[in-house]
Write a protein that binds this DNA or RNA. Structure first.
Length: 430
RNA sequence: GCGGCUAUAGUUCAGUGGCAGAACGCCGGUCUGUGGCACCGGAUGUCGUGGGUUCGACCCCCACUAGCCGCCCCA
């Protein structure tokens, strides 16, 4: 019989790596809490229409990367429903915002999420079909200040802080403004016109992109094309006064708190809902998938899926990529499984039962304890203890009778006799 | 979805159309209440899966699967 394996693009996370995942998630929760964000957990699958209307029918994500299936109708009279595993989480959050009328309180909603997302792409380093995102959204009625450039700057400053607390250095923040829903079509039109003459001189990929998705030409990495692409119309010149001023204020607030960024007029993103501020944090250690996180403002998303006017800004970080980045950092000790505080070695099977009692006492005192086996020879107990713990506690006939156990510290080699009731304080890490 | 590279022991990797290898790790012993060191010994295995060529395939050919790199796109 053939072996059943994890399906393509999915994987199991095992210790000690899960230690690092927990560390990342705990750090994110801690930082988000300081910025007064609350957690939201949305379903893993949604009505397909949510993504079609929210993310955009023409995007790659929706047009070819979604896991979609037809759910059975419950009754003859009922139509079957198309469902989709969420390819991203912003649409789900906005759907919940609308569904529970979160805007009616008149306040800004600040929500974060941590969870799996699904896209059917070819797996690669840092890219999986089930991947994990940590993201947050600030959304609310305009009267609550949801359109304010200060919100954009606050989110970006929070991200810089989060990366710093995670110990991730060497990232780059690139920003751009893609303008309002009105600005962008005008720009795309101008770009298309300019490309009629320029495109034939560009690389093969650009010639195709010029027709299918002109904005993508700006992403081209072919060296020879760069000068010509730089000479194309820039979106900055197509922004209306409002968008221009908005972006200037975002930059000013970032300058004030010392968050470094570069403005990349060629930064375009693949989801239709973005307006005005867009950004990407990249890291060179990631290879082709160099985006650590990305996000932006989505002032029209709520209305696009049938909700009230509810401008917002948010981001999603690729947790898988944070892990990769941290693992590549030289200082990272998080892959060390860590040693237990003590290894209890029952000497002889007669000591088995009482050794579990001893382990229970120490564990209740908060110590991390490994319990050996009384059938082991002493030599084996020492070898095992040395691999698993900082100290070994010998628990034989004498110790059980006298209540005084033998403790040997593997680091110092020092061996002492310790009364059982003092054991936990002796073993405690200093 | 497209192109390239790869798949051999728990791990990292050698290897040859004719007996399946090394290092580390693992197990046992020297050593029956004292580990790390040393020495001696041992087992590593569907050579990714399925077909084909051949007297004979881990090796050559085809398909599939998975991973990596790039494209596309994105987190």
């Amino acid at each position: 019989m053939s072996q059943i394996k994890a399906v393509r693009g999915t994987r199991d996370l095992l210790p000690p790596e899960t230690e690092l995942w927990n560390h990342i998630e705990a750090t994110a929760r801690r930082v988000f809490a300081r910025y007064a964000f609350g957690e939201i957990r949305t379903p893993i699958f949604e009505d397909t229409q949510l993504f079609a209307r929210g993310v955009g029918e023409e995007t790659d994500i929706v047009s070819k990367e979604m896991y979609t299936w037809e759910d059975r109708a419950r009754a003859q009279s009922e139509k079957a429903q198309m469902l989709t595993l969420r390819p991203e989480n912003t649409a789900g959050v906005v759907r919940a915002y609308i569904e529970y009328k979160l805007g009616d309180a008149g306040l800004l909603q600040k929500l974060y999420y941590i969870g799996p997302q699904f896209r059917r792409e070819r797996p690669q380093k840092g890219r999986y079909r089930q991947f994990f995102q940590i993201g947050a959204e600030v959304i609310g009625p305009p009267s609550a200040g949801s359109e304010s450039p200060l919100r954009d700057a606050e989110v970006l400053e929070m991200l810089a802080t989060l990366l710093e607390e995670l110990g991730i250095t060497g990232w780059t923040l690139e920003m751009n403004s893609v303008g309002s829903a009105m600005d962008r079509p005008r720009y795309v039109q101008a770009l298309r016109e300019a490309l009629v003459d320029v495109a034939p001189t560009l690389c093969i990929d650009c010639q195709r992109r010029a027709v299918t998705n002109p904005l993508r030409v700006l992403d081209c990495k072919v060296r020879e094309d760069q000068e010509k692409i730089d000479a194309l119309p820039k979106i900055a010149d197509f922004l209306d006064e409002g968008s221009r001023a908005h972006f200037a204020q975002v930059c000013a607030a970032l300058d004030a708190c010392g968050v470094l960024y570069t403005i990349n007029p060629r930064l375009v993103r693949g989801l239709d809902y973005y307006t005005r501020t867009t950004f990407e944090f990249t890291h060179s250690g990631l290879g082709a998938q160099n985006a650590l996180l990305g996000g932006g403002r989505y002032d029209g998303l709520s209305e696009a899926i049938g909700g009230p006017k509810a401008p917002g800004i948010g981001f999603a970080m690729g947790a898988d990529r944070l892990v990769l980045t941290l693992q590549a950092l030289p200082s990272q000790a998080a892959n060390d499984p860590g040693l237990a505080d003590a290894y209890i070695a029952p000497l002889g099977e007669a000591q088995q039962a009482e050794s579990l009692v001893l382990a229970r006492e120490l564990r209740r005192a908060g110590l991390r304890v490994e319990l050996g086996d009384g059938s082991f020879r002493l030599k084996k107990s020492f070898e095992m203890g040395n691999k698993l713990a900082r100290a070994i506690v010998l628990f034989g006939e004498d110790e059980a009778r006298s209540g005084i156990v033998t403790v040997k510290n593997f680091q110092t080699g020092e061996q002492t006799k310790v009364p059982r009731n003092e054991l936990s304080s002796v073993l405690r890490r200093d």
